[in-house]
Design a protein around this nucleic acid. Structure first.
Lengths: 337, 337
DNA sequence: CTGAAAGCGCTTACAG
DNA sequence: CTGAAAGCGCTTACAG
């Protein structure tokens, strides 16, 4: 490891140009009042010495770190990584850097421990894929830092949420499975207390109800809370023929596990998910899914945050109203003979 | 937006306890020399007032920001998002936060503009998925900040790289395609100047050579540099029957595009990729691929960085030597009749 | 239009 | 074992 070149600071630029650090700072930040000559001198010196601002110092004094915290479960689910990619690039374009925080799978919530490490970085804004724990709602509001719940409904917390109409999506899924002729249906969610998971389930059940069908209570599963083998046993025993999963990744896991039991998706049963991750990765379309329009979704999330940070009131239509989810047909569901 | 509660600083804790900020700081950082009573008082006051350290201020003074920069192309390719997930979690466990930097697809290199924004954050370490531009190598070394090239060979730059034996992987792929009976082969890379891309190609060609076969120069493509339609035209015209792609995402794109031309992977031709992204997402195994052992790969990358940061000399075997890539058979390649 | 001073919230050296 | 002072590199008032 080499020694590390002497760090160039404003002071060095000041000395080089014969100006004060104050004036140099003003030029670099394009604050009013300096002559063209001074500007040229400062820029030349910065270039020659390779000056790079220290954002930590700047943030400490000015109160704005130009940093946005993104909080999530994991980056393995493409829904997270794809949207994070788009969102973080929008932030970077506007001069914000992104600091990542994950709950490391500890809980499905933003808890105090997580907020503590977020706050230690003094971000200008927080975009969270996770809902706040109920005892954290006031804490978060009191920080005064713009906080956006992305992909989840903010209303129950009195917070800003950027989300889709998940009940509608669940309805689409239910109608599709019924139209294929599947009658013995199941829902495999993630956690029983995650609203978006429940909303999709709700829409699913509404679709069934409108056609006189229903989801048996013991055909509702939560894969993060139950042993997968138990779920599979039940599916096999009860001859379930149509499965809606909370998301595509869960659907893939179930497809793989049922394959090991000799059941093939699209042949012995129908299964579908949510998110259309295949499209994100340009994969061949195997799984039937509900596409929520992730690109526009992510753009909207970034836009809402950037509006908040710039102090603009955002009276534009919510993503939920502006975009409609749509069904993407794959080979994992077929019209039953 | 609410007002934002008064920020609690060390000064507040000092006043509350009747101690000096200095002593409070020492207790919180567990520096030697304080009594149990003082410790208890400080901890109680911090808890009561909800003190959270300001890492920016701390980093400014101490010189260590407890921050690691991760630099990448995009998070859309699961190879990046999966490994980033694992790596960033290891960093978090050790008390480092991750700041993300992307080149926004501008180039395939770490250039000055990118390094400038990285340096402005004064990270303790930099883990880059991208190779440095040739004129940036000295610049990066002179910063004295630990810099790891992840997934690429560092040797050409005299830098630390954590990478796999890519030539070996290419060889595996070549042997597999030949063993299936494909004879009219092509390679589809990303960029012509990315070493890992060339290494896979090299291994591929070595495997062919050892069996008296060869890759025609006009059957070597770079998808980031050429129009995809031109590539497809050539594949169809020249009746190419076996394709190795630099990675799975490229393979999926090609599979999809050729499908539109009536050619089905595993039927009309064989195709394979690298990375085994299907496994990461628990997807059904469609594409034949070379698996590099991404989990261990990512762990190794994190370990090397953490060793550098802790000042330990790492004389452990390189990932390249400790792990062997292996072939994962999917339905996209079959033994020709 | 420019500069000298103060201060952001910490930690580091040093003195007691 | 504890504290008063200085300083990290900037930006913000304020004075000229």
């Amino acid at each position: 490891m080499s020694e590390g070149k002497k760090k160039i600071t404003l002071k060095d630029i000041a000395e080089k140009t014969g100006l004060s650090v104050n004036t140099v700072s003003r030029v670099l930040n394009k604050k009013p009042y300096y002559t063209k000559e001074v500007e040229a001198k400062v820029n030349a010196a910065c270039k020659e010495l390779g000056y790079i601002v220290d954002m930590n110092a700047s943030g400490l004094r000015s109160g704005s770190t130009h940093t946005i915290a993104i909080v999530f479960d994991d980056l393995i689910n493409p829904f997270y990584s794809y949207t994070t990619d788009i969102i973080s690039k929008r932030f970077e374009e506007k001069g914000y850097n992104v600091i990542m925080f994950s709950n490391n799978g500890r809980t499905s919530y933003v808890d105090y421990e997580l907020m503590r490490s977020v706050m230690a970085r003094k971000p200008d804004g927080i975009l969270s894929f996770l809902e706040p724990a109920s005892d954290m709602v006031d804490f978060i509001k009191e920080t005064g830092i713009p906080f956006i719940i992305f992909g989840r409904d903010g209303a129950p917390y009195g917070m800003i949420g950027v989300d889709a109409d998940e009940v509608y999506g669940g309805k689409l899924a239910g109608e599709h499975l019924l139209s294929c002729g599947y009658r013995n249906l199941a829902y495999i969610g993630s956690w029983h207390d995650v609203k978006v998971c429940l909303d999709r389930q709700k829409g699913f059940e509404e679709a069934l109800a409108s056609q006189g069908a229903a989801l048996a209570p013991d055909h509702i599963f939560y894969i993060r809370e139950q042993e997968i083998d138990g779920i599979l046993d039940k599916i096999v025993e009860d001859k379930i023929d149509g499965i809606l999963c909370f998301n595509d990744v869960i659907a893939f896991i179930v497809v793989e596990a049922l394959e090991a039991r000799g059941m093939e998706a699209g042949v012995h049963y129908g299964i579908m998910g949510f998110d259309n991750v295949q499209q994100m990765m340009r994969m061949p379309r195997f799984l039937t899914t509900v596409d929520v329009g992730c690109y526009e979704f992510a753009e909207k999330g970034a836009e809402v945050m950037l509006d908040l940070l710039s102090g603009e009131e955002t009276e534009k239509p919510a993503f939920r109203d502006a975009h409609k989810s749509f069904l993407v047909q794959g080979r994992s569901t077929v019209v039953k003979q």
